[in-house]
Simulated assay, not measured.
Amino acid sequence: MHHFGRIMGPKRKLTFAHRLSPEVKQTKVISQKCKRGKRMSPGKSERSLKDSPEYDPQAGVSEITFTESDYSGPDFSVIELHKSVIKGYHAYKIRPPFTKQPTRLIVDREYTNIKDLNACLVWIPSLDQFPQNVHEMVTDTKRFIKLSDIADLPIGHVPRSLAGLFRSVLDEGGEIFAEATGEPVPSFPPWPAPNEEGGGVVLPASYFIYAKQNIKMVSSQLKNLLNALKEGSGMMVVLK
Results as ranks from 00 to 15, higher is better:
T112S: 13
G200E: 02
V201K: 06
Q213G: 07
I114M: 13
E46N: 14
R19H: 14
H18I: 06
L165M: 09
L222E: 00
I145K: 03
L49C: 14
G234V: 03
L222F: 02
P96C: 07
S52G: 06
I150R: 00
V202W: 01
A178Y: 03
Q129S: 10
G9D: 12
T141N: 10
P22A: 06
L105F: 05
A193K: 14
G9N: 15
G234A: 05
S21L: 07
L165D: 00
R19Y: 07
M137S: 11
T139Y: 01
Y89R: 01
K44H: 09
G60A: 12
K223I: 05
M217Y: 13
V24R: 11
P97L: 02
P10V: 12
G43C: 05
F4E: 11
M217G: 11
S126G: 10
V185D: 04
E80P: 04
P154N: 06
I176N: 00
S220T: 10
I209D: 01
K212M: 08
G37V: 09
L203A: 04
T139M: 07
L49F: 05
G60T: 12
L49T: 10
F177T: 12
M236Q: 13
A91N: 14
T15N: 09
N224M: 07
S62K: 14
H82I: 06
I114K: 15
A59K: 15
L121R: 09
M8E: 13
I7F: 06
E197Y: 11
L226Q: 07
L153E: 03
